[in-house]
Amino acid sequence: MTGAPPWLLLSPCLGLLAVFFVLPLAWLVRVSLYQRTSGAGGFYIADSFTLDHYAAVMTDPYFRGIALATLRLGLVVTATTLLLAYPLAVYLWRAGPTLKRGTLLAILLPKLTNLLVAMYGVLVVLANAGPINSLLLAGGIVREPLAMFANLFAVVVGETLILVPYPVLIIATALHGVDPRLVEAARGMGAGPLRAFYEVPFKLTLPSVLLAALVSLVWALGAFAAPVVLGNPDLYPVAVEVYTTTFEDVNWPLGATLAVLNMAVVTLLAMSTYVVQRRIERSFGR
């Protein structure tokens, strides 16, 4: 193992990325700069160059609405995901080895189901004739079925279900790096259980919480299946718009423009997260 030059270990993965990610990405950027064909025949005018699509996206209130819908969904999903993930991560940190393994399995198993199948599963549960509404109706708690799908609630439920394992794993890993003696030391010096947790493990894992938030947000900003299956057109984020623009309106350049801008936002987010993370860590003297 140690005899192999480092680049040899890196190259298969790097090659895969170059061919199937970097090349298409470059192509995507190029497509976004073509002019659209006015009539039938072809998806764009070859050898043309225009910034019209970028200008359109930036100025059209329609796209501003989509951007806001995307951002709102992203933030709500990120907040929900973190609120669910943090206690679970703390539980994993405190649990004994058997419970820990069992819980980890329970967290990871749903990831083995097909995404669409999972989303339709959520739909079935939330539907008017679904188990929740049936119970509420039978119990006389509601007179009419609660509207629990085709709205933001349903999309957030579905998207959270998809995302929650990632922040759990990120935060739990960080917590595992915290020496339990530190909590004991804090307790011994007069901190109650909650205060001790806040002062030591919570503060020490803040950079990882930030990373977990970023991962959730990036995923949520690219949400597709949950909004389509569980939402309504008013809630469709940019990923759905990219799809409809490209394949239903057959407007490749505009679709590509939306995709490029989405990527740019995500890249910017990742970079600013890194900066904030470094700042927190530096305040720890690292």
Binding site: A185, A186, R187, G188, G190
Partner: peptide
């Protein structure tokens, strides 16, 4: 434990890595 007013030096010291020396000493 937090109401016993007992000082403890751990074998591993258990210093808070994210706090300065002054903050560590002033924690209690």
């Amino acid at each position: 434990i937090e109401r016993r007013n007992v000082g403890m030096v751990f074998q591993s010291y258990a210093l808070f890595p994210h706090m300065t020396v002054a903050d560590n000493v002033g924690f209690g």
